[in-house]
Write a protein that binds this DNA or RNA. Structure first.
Lengths: 212, 212
DNA sequence: TAGTCAACTAACGAGTTAGTTAATTGTTGA
DNA sequence: TCAACAATTAACTAACTCGTTAGTTGACTA
């Protein structure tokens, strides 16, 4: 995947495949270095085509960056749209949200980092492109429903959502640092992720459930 | 602070002040753009001295970056070293940890972002310079003690520490994104931070306390 | 008060980076 | 089969960026 920049002539011509290849390479590069730190030459080197293709298909580094932000947004929004949170008991709905969010981090390992770079260096200017507003608002509404039902304590639902997002993302985003503190631990085996998921669910649900 | 690059001649000569000024400017720049995205010219422009002073005092961009990582490390380690966690009841000790961690985020607004950049773009290579291992290990030990005492559920103490760090940091690091979802909210007033702190403490403590 | 040195500046050079362009080659439909 | 067009490349440019260097200046000291 990363060792293909050598071959000087493309075997087949496939515009869609080339665009997808550029997007995938750009996602990796932007996830690691942010917008300013990412180099278009490095993105091109990760693909089988030349840098000019970036400009042919995307026009500019900035437009490429926006395209990278927009793409997996749809993935997550769709995965979330399929969930019928509104008809589940609030506890079950929140468990599902945490499960899906962590599974999404696993299946889209670069996306959370890109969002953090966007926040840190770009002050969230393009965050609206990601379509996250809607899922977040739905989870807030879900917590509010749990409070009204008397299942949850009278917490601040926005803060609970913040806490939950922090729990679900920190494990992934800070892992390269935390690995130094716990060098022997395997972070991304299916078993480790399952234990992490269950621990996150247990902490959040016990943390907000109404007193008996 | 940022509009001082014009004055071509320095009024006073003060090596320590100049070094500190460069470090502060570098911290802002690295926090926003990471290592690759930060420009030495931009760092110099934030100070009252020229770029050559960076190389005069720090030798290279890389050495400057390491100096930035090392500096507030001491602040936090010291603040933490003063806490007598080992002689408090585990609940009280954990409350204190969360309070101090959030206060540290408020008083060092750039530091958490630098650590995230370090994880994302540098894979935590220099994380050992920050001296965080020790505080983290102390909190893990504290949770273990709470479990042994029967005050906490038999949770995985490492995961609890991960969750807690996620809660304490996400509010700050992702705020430029979350602001878009909640545009009317004031995130950093003393009252908002106090509510956030209490909510974080309540969630974590309720989340891990032993069943009655 | 003349000498000395740390602190500092302006300007530059080598290498890098975003973006462009002219030419080339594969593909497709009539 | 071939013209027209889409996809692609190599080579290029202008601007930027890291790091260096030759020279300047304020302050302290003998």
């Amino acid at each position: 995947m990363a060792t293909k920049g050598q071959s000087s002539v493309r075997q087949t011509r496939d515009a869609e495949a080339t665009k997808a290849e550029i997007l995938a390479a750009a996602e990796e590069e932007f996830a690691r270095f942010g917008f300013a730190g990412a180099k278009t030459d490095a993105i091109a080197a990760r693909t089988g085509v030349t840098k000019a293709m970036i400009y042919y298909y995307f026009g500019s580094k900035d437009e490429l960056y926006k395209a990278v932000l927009e793409r997996p947004a749809a993935d997550f929004a769709n995965a979330f749209a399929d969930l019928d949170l509104e008809h589940l008991p609030p506890e079950e709905a929140l468990k599902t949200v945490i499960r899906v969010a962590i599974a999404h981090e696993m299946s889209h390992p670069y996306y959370g980092r890109i969002l953090l770079h966007e926040a840190m260096e770009n002050q969230g200017k393009y965050f609206h492109l990601t379509g996250w507003d809607n899922p977040i608002n739905r989870v807030v509404a879900l917590v509010e429903r749990g409070i009204e039902d008397g299942r949850f304590r009278p917490v601040d639902p926005w803060l609970v959502v913040n806490h939950t997002m922090g729990i679900c993302t920190f494990y992934f985003n800070a892992q390269p640092n935390m690995r130094n503190v716990r060098p022997e631990f395997e972070w991304f085996t299916p078993e480790a992720i399952e234990r992490f998921t269950e621990s996150a669910i247990a902490l959040v649900l016990a943390g907000i459930k109404a007193d008996a």
